[in-house]
Design a protein around this nucleic acid. Structure first.
Lengths: 234, 234
DNA sequence: CCTATCCAATGTGTCGACAAAAAGGATGCG
DNA sequence: CGCATCCTTTTTGTCGACACATTGGATAGG
């Protein structure tokens, strides 16, 4: 699906091909436009993007490094599955990253960081206001990624981004139908977070981040168990 | 340096080339056999490993994903530098990972995990006994990686491995000269760690891991500041 | 003598093609 | 009629070659 055409032929710059393919595929995977398990065919992509298989392969190698696709040797590459067995590990890790990045932001933020964070929060509030679930998920991710940036710890920021992306896949899996979730509560929690970061109050930032993480984890768990019940009911 | 010859020509299996190059280069980078900043030439590697540039490039892309090499567009690829400015972030992250992986191991370990951990600890003790600094560093890494495995959280295990590898590079930078460091203290701390994990005592595991991390961080800091003094003295 | 421009040389990014490996279907046997 | 085997087809892994970008040196100008 989504056989969006690329620019016609040979007008792209020298190193841009890989980046383009990587970005597009990454987005399609995260947005579930490419559902987990779908095969990723190199020839098909080569034709779609009007380029040789070489840059395609490089993009796939990088996506595999991010864990977004899984390469079966001598066999096809597929979009990585969402592993429900390791959900507890996921919840554990993302909760910890919420905490340390927010705490780090409270400690290391510059004024410019704060401004950027506020911009993302505005975008998030806007998405909530207009009931756009997909936009909520995306802007929420950007908001927390900006906080992680302000925390000045690339190790945390990298892991957190990865976790947030996986969370995006998870949420999309459930939010596509009933799009009025993600309560106003999240907006106010975000505001409290910003306050704590602005005041450089490490403990408050940590505390509200933990609460926020719990909130999100519980929501995902609720969605999943509800879904399970439905499936059993069939 | 180290122009180790590979097996002659075309007797390697189909998907093994990339893995081989990746593993060899990774080891040479971590062991500082390839010092930070050294250029990584694709043609040169292609000749050295007796294969085309394609699998070489794929290995380099993966190494770049691990942060071990840095690719300058249209220019050479170089072994990533050790960034001393982000050392505080490194210390922060590795301390946290020491704690959560050890705590996780105390919670989720199987008996088999415990056995594996003890084996690695034996190897570490052996290295300490024989005053082999390089072996200490390597076996210490394996010991903690095994604990991380037992913690059953792939996110933590991945980040921790990466941090331990960077730590290996850091330590090698200083240990090459005076090789009698890494006191017996570390061995006993490891033993305490194993005890806590065996008893499934989460808090004790956390506590001893934090102490252990502090120990290591302080040691690295000492080495660096000593080294700085020497350099200024020249 | 110093500086700016041009040119050659080196090395990366991309391409099309070939070969090995696996998947799926056809065929023969029990 | 079911099952194993062979073959065909599809797709990946690897190769050698070419085109562009950058670098460093040579040359001309100030």
């Amino acid at each position: 699906m989504s056989q969006n055409a690329q620019q016609h032929s040979q007008d792209r710059k020298r190193g841009s091909g890989v980046r383009l393919v990587y970005d597009v595929l990454r987005d399609e995977i995260i947005s579930l436009s490419l559902p987990p398990g779908s095969p990723v065919d190199e020839n098909q992509l080569a034709e779609r993007f009007q380029m040789s298989r070489t840059p395609i392969r490089e993009a796939l190698v990088r996506l595999a490094g991010d864990g977004l696709v899984t390469t079966l040797p001598n066999r096809s590459t597929v979009v990585s599955n969402i592993d429900f067995l390791s959900l507890p590990a996921f919840f554990d890790a993302i909760t910890l990253m919420y905490r340390v990045t927010t705490r780090g932001a409270a400690r290391h933020r510059s004024d410019q960081d704060l401004e950027r964070i506020r911009e993302h929060q505005a975008a998030f509030a806007e998405a909530v206001k207009s009931q756009d679930a997909m936009a909520m998920i995306a802007t929420n991710r950007d908001f927390h990624a900006a906080i992680a940036e302000a925390g000045r710890n690339p190790y945390y920021a990298t892991l957190f981004s990865r976790l947030l992306d996986e969370g995006r896949r998870l949420l999309r899996l459930y939010y596509s139908s009933y799009a009025d979730q993600l309560p106003q509560e999240f907006v106010t929690e975000h505001e409290q977070m910003i306050d704590a970061i602005a005041r450089r109050d490490l403990d408050a930032a940590d505390r509200i981040a933990a609460i926020h993480a719990d909130q999100i984890v519980r929501q995902i768990q609720t969605l999943i168990s509800e879904d399970r019940r439905d499936q059993i009911g069939l």
